[in-house]
């Protein structure tokens, strides 16, 4: 019994370390003590902030589209008339796909009293919805902010949050498909059940395909190693074209899908910009750089005094149509001239 009692003292090292680190953390947070709310006033005419603005961009993981969106935000801020370093600072934080760290990051953002927080991707928005109630937040790169819990509709949402939905242009895709392949009846896509956005995208694609008189056949895929097999299986399901919806897994392993569709000569379409370069006949792609710039545009409205609650969520303002003529020739598909005229970019 005596031993047990004295052994209590042996944890002192650990406790001491915890206390010391907590104190260091508090020390770095000392500016928030007795902090009076820093009320932001902007000179409307020249748009000069009353103090140096602190922005923060929180990202969940490293993926090509989140990098494009980040570049868009940086570019948008640079073009906003504010000067980096004198008018504002942008702090970019990335959780590298770790949800526990994401929680840490968002606590840190909450206690750092940023003037405005940008966020990309759905898990980030979900954690923000839970934890940040007063700092204005502008999100981007979220397929469906309503499902993520940011509000009940695009106009009725949490009062400090607004942003840009990057739901793919499935309506445009379905229409384009009918224009290029009027005889098509059935299309197919792979989807990733493990990604919320993938499931959502599949449903939306299904809806617009049905409107255009197309049936959608889907095959689930769970890892990039399975993509090739799954794509081959999809191509043998009597489909007229593969029209790949957007998600992280399939956009990373699109080349496997391309190989499968090339070996079975099933025409391939995509919804991410670089997929046309990777062998799709056409890609109807949201402009992810634009999605970052759109987020900055909303942020500027907030900085100029509008309440985030009054700003509805928006879709990305720009969609690109990219056509790959070489791929079209390979699949023996004739692309109508009016489609080529509409294209933002044609790869020869």
């Amino acid at each position: 019994m005596k031993n047990t009692f004295f052994s209590i003292f042996k944890i002192y090292k650990g406790l001491l370390l915890i206390v010391i680190i907590s104190l260091i953390l508090l020390y770095t947070d000392r500016y928030n003590r007795n902090k009076k709310e820093n009320i932001l006033t902007l000179d409307q005419g020249t748009f000069k902030p009353s103090h140096k603005l602190k922005f923060c961009l929180i990202q969940y993981n490293d993926a090509p589209i989140s990098e494009e969106c980040r570049d868009g935000i940086v570019k948008g801020l640079a073009e906003s008339g504010l000067k980096e370093g004198t008018d504002y600072n942008l702090n970019i934080i990335n959780a590298q796909g770790d949800l526990a760290t994401l929680n840490n990051i968002i606590d840190e953002a909450q206690s750092s009293h940023y003037d405005l927080i940008f966020s990309t991707s759905t898990p980030t928005l979900q954690t923000i919805v839970k934890k940040i109630k007063d700092t204005p937040v502008v999100f981007s790169l979220v397929a469906d902010p309503v499902v993520a819990g940011a509000g009940t509709s695009f106009t009725n949402h949490q009062s400090n949050i607004t942003g840009i939905s990057t739901l793919g242009d499935y309506e445009g895709m379905a229409k384009l498909l009918k224009e290029i392949m009027p005889g098509a009846k059935t299309i197919g896509t792979l989807y990733t059940p493990g990604e919320a956005n993938s499931v959502k995208n599949k449903e939306v694609m299904e809806m617009y395909a049905k409107k255009a008189g197309l049936d959608l056949v889907t095959v689930p895929v769970n890892s990039s190693a399975e993509t090739m097999d799954a794509a081959l299986m999809l191509c043998t399901k009597k489909i007229d074209a593969v029209c790949q919806i957007i998600d992280n897994l399939t956009s990373a392993s699109f080349s496997s899908i391309q190989k499968a569709s090339a070996s079975t000569s099933i025409p391939l379409f995509g919804l991410v910009g670089d997929q046309a370069e990777k062998g799709a006949i056409a890609a109807v792609s949201r402009d992810y750089i634009q999605s970052g710039m759109d987020a900055v545009r909303l942020a500027m409205r907030i900085l100029k005094g509008e309440k985030p609650a009054a700003i509805p969520f928006e879709y990305v303002s720009k969609t690109n149509l990219i056509i790959n003529r070489k791929a079209a020739a390979f699949y023996k598909i004739k692309i109508p001239d009016k489609v080529i005229k509409k294209a933002d970019k044609v790869i020869k």
């Binding site: 370390l17 915890i18 680190i21 907590s22 260091i24 770095t28 760290t101 840490n104 606590d107 840190e108």
Partner: peptide, 13 residues
């Protein structure tokens, strides 16, 4: 607990 605190410090810095 210590591990999370260390991550927090790293973020803070």
């Amino acid at each position: 607990v210590l591990f999370r605190l260390l991550v927090a410090i790293a973020l803070r810095w």
